[in-house]
Amino acid sequence: MISLSVVTLAKGRPDHLVNVVRGLSMQTVMPSELIVAVMQEEEYRLPDAPFPIRQMRITGESLPLAAARNAAARAAVGEWLVFLDMDCIPTPTLIADYAGFLKAHDALLMGEVMYLPGGATAGDWSCDAFAAIAEKHSDRRGPPASGVERCQDYRCFWSLNFAMRRDTFLSVGGFDERYVGYGGEDTDFGKVVDRAGVAIAWIKGGLAYHQHHPHHMPPVHHLDSVVRNAELFEAKWGYRTMGHWLHAFRLMGLVDDTPGQPIRILRRPEAGDLALTGQQSHQPYANSARVLRLLEAEAARTAAPDRASVAVAA
């Protein structure tokens, strides 16, 4: 029997968490337990499962993601940890895949993620049905053709679906709990792991299907925490992270992120900003690259008359 705990963070979206439990209950190899770090007042009503489920209340600010992951990892009984977001339905071999790779590799291992459109879980609830309609995220690289492939850039780490040996996770100190709210804590953790000499790698397998939910990319709805966490990262490492989001915020007139100065929020997001960045019901995922292309094209059009005026004056 393997010794592996699954960790997920939960706030709202009870149907998504129920689907995670359903997916874990269909595994070819069962986990030792599921730990749910609950970031809301009430616990969840979850279906029975062939493994223990523990719900831990996490107190603190609205989204204490780093602290929640650390608390769940410390409480886990498994020698190995799989971190799976509550909107990710595991395929039947996810646990077996991770267990096989963790046995051979003391590394941070990143599994595959495919994205479902709205309504996908309301009909034929099966991974075969999901496979027929799921899409790969255009901004994320895919898995290797087979086995394990080491990642040379810690910035590629994404906490959506990953696994580590518990002792290794704790030895590097876990996530920095000063990061509160959305943004920055993943890149920080990737850098910490890389600095500790622990390999970051993609695996072929460990596939999960991401459930559709409304989202914004770039995350204008998390403007304050992105700014705060970018400045925390800079104070810690000497440079800012989330540069593509800050670039988009600057083009939208939301921030002034002049290098060497504190980031200033110039205005609050309005309806037009939310409409531009919002995920539509037919889209499996929100896409920062798409929005940036639109913003940069608009900035180029706006700048063109100014350049023409300068040329005439000259």
Rank of each mutant, 00 (worst) to 15 (best):
M1A: 08
I2V: 08
S3K: 05
D15A: 15
D15Y: 04
H16Y: 04
N19A: 14
V20H: 07
R22W: 09
L24I: 03
S25M: 04
Q27H: 09
V29S: 03
L34R: 04
L34E: 10
A37K: 05
E41V: 00
E43S: 10
E43Q: 08
Y44W: 04
P47N: 09
P47G: 09
D48F: 10
P50A: 12
P52S: 10
P52K: 08
I53M: 07
I58Q: 03
A66N: 04
R69G: 02
R69Y: 08
A72S: 06
A73G: 15
A75D: 13
G78K: 01
G78R: 02
G78F: 02
F83Y: 03
L84N: 13
D85A: 04
I89N: 04
P90A: 14
T93N: 10
A96P: 04
D97T: 07
Y98M: 15
A99S: 13
H105C: 11
D106I: 00
A107Q: 12
L109P: 13
A120Y: 10
A122R: 13
A122Q: 10
G123K: 08
W125A: 14
S126C: 05
A131E: 12
E135T: 11
R140P: 01
G142P: 09
P143Q: 05
A145S: 04
C151S: 09
D153Q: 08
D153M: 07
D153V: 10
Y154I: 01
Y154W: 14
F157T: 00
W158C: 07
S159L: 00
F162P: 01
M164S: 05
R165A: 13
R166G: 13
L170N: 01
V172N: 01
G173H: 06
Y179P: 00
G181Q: 03
D186N: 03
D188S: 02
F189Y: 12
V192E: 00
V193T: 05
A199F: 00
I203A: 10
K204G: 11
G206E: 12
H210E: 07
H210R: 04
H215Y: 14
M217K: 05
V226L: 12
V227P: 07
F233P: 07
E234V: 05
E234A: 15
T241A: 02
T241L: 01
M242A: 09
R250I: 01
M252Q: 15
M252R: 13
M252W: 09
G253R: 02
G253E: 06
L254P: 06
P259G: 08
Q261S: 10
P262E: 02
I263Y: 01
R267Y: 05
R267C: 06
A271V: 12
D273R: 02
G278H: 12
Q279F: 10
S281T: 09
H282W: 14
Q283E: 15
Q283P: 11
P284E: 09
Y285S: 07
A286W: 03
L292E: 14
A297I: 04
E298Q: 11
A300N: 14
A303H: 11
S309D: 11
A311F: 15
A311V: 15
